[in-house]
Design a protein around this nucleic acid. Structure first.
Lengths: 176, 176
DNA sequence: CAATATCACTTAACATGTTAATCATATTCC
DNA sequence: GGAATATGATTAACATGTTAAGTGATATTG
C-alpha cells in the first residue's frame, strides 16, 4: 500500500511532492479506470441532454421505451440498468411531465406497464440528432474497430464477474 | 433492433417477447457498457466495505490519503475523482468520525489540508486484505494481461475525449 | 379456503452526483 | 491602498444510488 513517510516530516514538502507525482497506483485501479472513462464519455452528452431538460437516466428510460410498444417496470429497470427505487421516482416525474404513460396490467394488478407518449417521442426525436452526432464523433476519434473491441472486453469482464459470488461477509456477521 | 410484434397483439405477449430479446442495440451503447462493467466490479467490493461502515467514495478518499502525508482539498478531489461538493460533505463526516484530520494552510487561509488519522489508518488496514483478495480474484478470472490491456484502452479513450470540446457550445459562446 | 409466503412495486432514509450560488480570502489593477 | 476580480471551499437545491421497510396483490400450502 505505498510506503508512508517515516519520521519527523515537514508537511509543506510532502504536499509539494504529492502535487508532482500523486498516487499513480491508486488512480490506476480498475474501478477508477472505468469511472473516469465513463465520465469522459458522459461529459460529452450531458450538456445536450440538459438543454432539453433531461438527465442521463431520464434519457436512458425514454430511449429504451422507443424500442418497445410497452414494457413492465421491472423489465424496464433491467434494461435501463436502474434500481427499482430510482426508476420509481423517475417514472413518477416523467409521467407528471406527460412524457410517458402508465397503466396497470389487467391480468396482474401488481404489475405496471409503461410506454412512451407522443410528447415523449417528440422530445427523443429532438435530442437524437445531437446525441448521434456526439456518438459518431467519439467513434471517429477512438476508432470504430477499437471501440467494438473495447466493448467486447467490457462484456467479457462483466460476464466473468457474474459467477464470482460476493466475497464480502468474511468476519462473521451471520445473524439476521 | 429486435423485430417487433406485427399485427394484432396482446400486450401480455409483447411483454413476453421483450423479456426474451430486449433492446440489444440500446444496451450495447458505450456508456451502458462502461456502466455495467463498473457495476459488476463494484458489486464485488461493496459488501466488504459496508461491513466496515464505509461507502465506496469514503474508501477512495481514505485510500488516497494513505499514499500522502497531507493533501489539499482540491487536489484530493482531483485524485479521488470526486466533485467538490461531494468531497466537502464526505470530509465533514469523516472528520466527525475522526478518521481524518483537517487544518488550514498557514500561507493561504482559503486552503484546507487533509490527512488520515491513526484511527483511519487502522480502518484501512482492516479493510485492505479483503479488498486486495477481491482484486486478485478479479485479475485472476479476467486475466492479468487482458486487464492491463483493458485499462490501457480505457486510458486512451479518456485521453482521446479530453480534447473533444463539449458539444452545445461550439467554441463560440465565449463568456457568460 | 385461510394462513402464509412471494412478488411487483413504492416509500423511506441516507449518501452521493450535479449545477448554481455563497463566503471568505487572495490577487490584480487602477 | 482599495475597488474589482479571481480562487478555494462550502452550502443549497434537486436528482439519483443504495439498502431496508412498507403495501397491496398473487401464489402456495396446509
Amino acid at each position: 500500500m505505498a510506503r508512508k513517510k517515516s519520521q519527523t516530516e515537514s508537511n509543506t514538502e510532502a504536499a509539494e511532492t504529492a502535487r508532482r507525482a500523486p498516487m499513480r497506483d491508486f488512480s490506476r485501479s480498475l474501478p477508477m479506470s472505468l469511472l473516469r472513462a465513463r465520465e469522459a464519455v458522459m461529459r460529452q452528452f450531458r450538456p445536450s441532454l440538459r438543454n432539453h431538460g433531461l438527465t442521463e437516466q431520464q434519457w436512458r428510460i425514454l430511449r429504451a421505451l422507443t424500442t418497445v410498444d410497452a414494457i413492465e417496470v421491472t423489465e424496464l429497470a433491467r434494461v435501463a440498468f436502474l434500481l427499482g427505487p430510482s426508476l420509481s421516482r423517475i417514472l413518477r416525474d416523467l409521467e407528471a411531465r406527460q412524457l410517458i404513460e402508465r397503466r396497470t396490467a389487467k391480468a396482474d394488478l401488481r404489475r405496471a406497464v409503461v410506454s412512451i407518449s407522443a410528447k415523449g417521442l417528440k422530445l427523443i426525436e429532438a435530442v437524437a440528432p445531437t446525441s448521434e452526432a456526439i456518438y459518431a464523433e467519439i467513434t471517429s476519434r477512438y476508432g470504430a474497430r477499437k471501440l467494438a473491441e473495447l466493448q467486447d472486453m467490457l462484456g467479457v469482464l462483466e460476464r466473468s464477474l457474474v459467477a464470482m459470488e460476493v466475497a464480502g461477509e468474511e468476519s462473521g456477521e451471520i445473524e439476521e
